[in-house]
């Protein structure tokens, strides 16, 4: 009897949508709470960066920097060679963008739009190389670059991108496969060579994937830690990541300055994110195989 009443009550709730509303409200509350949790570390980074050192070590913590010390952002440029680090990081992240955008579409074009047998055999090999962990090739590469006297230069970090990287070739291939060949055929009949077709027809058609890959390569270079760690020993050549780490180990950690430097390190990526949100979201989704 009771259960019948109960189920009727339940039915009524579903009918009125009460249940749905309650879960909805709980869901939104959870969302807001988690949002605060996720945002808090970022806020704390900026907040610490704007404080005077003494106010970092108070209990309870000082939630709003007061007084605000903008000078931390100037001081950090004097205390370490931040400008030089930024320049070096730009070199190691922008040059690979150029390299990748030149080489990978070319290889993908060969795999998808030129009717030759290699395309069939090359692609599985390309995929297989993705399985090899970087640690295996690292040491022989290091030994070779050191024999070529290329240590302490940017060459080992940027040159390989001009020879294509498997991952981005894969992305371009997936994208180019779906491009219509009719336009290219027409151009070929009109006497255009393959390079002409690639640069004048295929590139414009690929603009969205080009942006995506450019953004991904840039971020990869900007964040790279292992490469610069191995190859750049001279402080003249340090990138942001290495410089920051050295600054931390050099002295007692000065949190306000470290957080200011971290903010500067992160900021460009966030700016890029806001300008090319779609490129980001597309990139993540194409890489996972979901269209």
């Amino acid at each position: 009897m009771k259960s019948a009443k109960n189920s009727k009550w339940k039915e009524l709730m579903i009918y009125k949508g009460v249940r749905g509303k309650v879960t909805h409200v709980i869901g939104i509350i959870a969302l807001v709470f988690l949002c605060l949790v996720f945002a808090l570390p970022l806020y704390w980074m900026v907040c610490t960066a704007l404080k005077y050192e003494v106010y970092c070590f108070t209990t309870p913590p000082q939630w709003f920097p007061n007084p605000i010390k903008w000078d931390n952002f100037l001081e950090i440029f004097q205390r370490m060679d931040l400008a030089k680090y930024i320049r070096n990081t730009l070199v190691t992240s922008l040059v690979p963008v150029v390299g990748t955008l030149l080489s990978c579409p070319m290889v993908a074009y060969s795999l998808t739009k030129i009717p030759w047998k290699g395309g069939k055999y090359l692609f599985p090999i390309i995929l297989m190389t993705m399985m090899i962990p970087a640690q295996v090739t690292q040491i022989p590469m290091y030994a070779t670059w050191s024999k070529l006297n290329m240590l302490n230069t940017f060459v080992p970090l940027v040159l390989p991108s001009f020879f294509g990287s498997t991952y981005y070739i894969y992305l371009f291939r997936q994208f180019m496969k779906s491009l219509p060949t009719s336009v290219m055929e027409a151009a070929r009949i009109d006497g255009a060579g393959d390079f002409r077709i690639l640069y004048n027809i295929v590139y414009p058609m690929c603009s969205s994937i080009l942006t995506t890959v450019a953004v991904m390569v840039f971020i990869g270079g900007w964040n790279d830690y292992v490469g610069p760690l191995m190859y750049l020993q001279d402080s003249e050549r340090y990138t942001l990541g290495i410089g920051l780490q050295m600054f931390k180990t050099a002295a007692q950690p000065e949190w306000t300055l470290l957080m200011a430097a971290s903010t500067i390190f992160t900021l460009p990526l966030i700016v890029i994110f806001f300008f090319c949100q779609n490129a980001f979201l597309n990139g993540i989704q194409t890489t996972s195989g979901i269209k």
Partner: peptide, 21 residues
């Protein structure tokens, strides 16, 4: 033609993957 367009990767594959491995 296919080889020409795939050459960046072919060279890279030999120099930066096969030989190091």
């Amino acid at each position: 033609k296919g080889m020409l367009f795939a050459s960046p990767w072919l060279i890279g594959f030999v120099c930066f993957t096969i030989l190091p491995v």
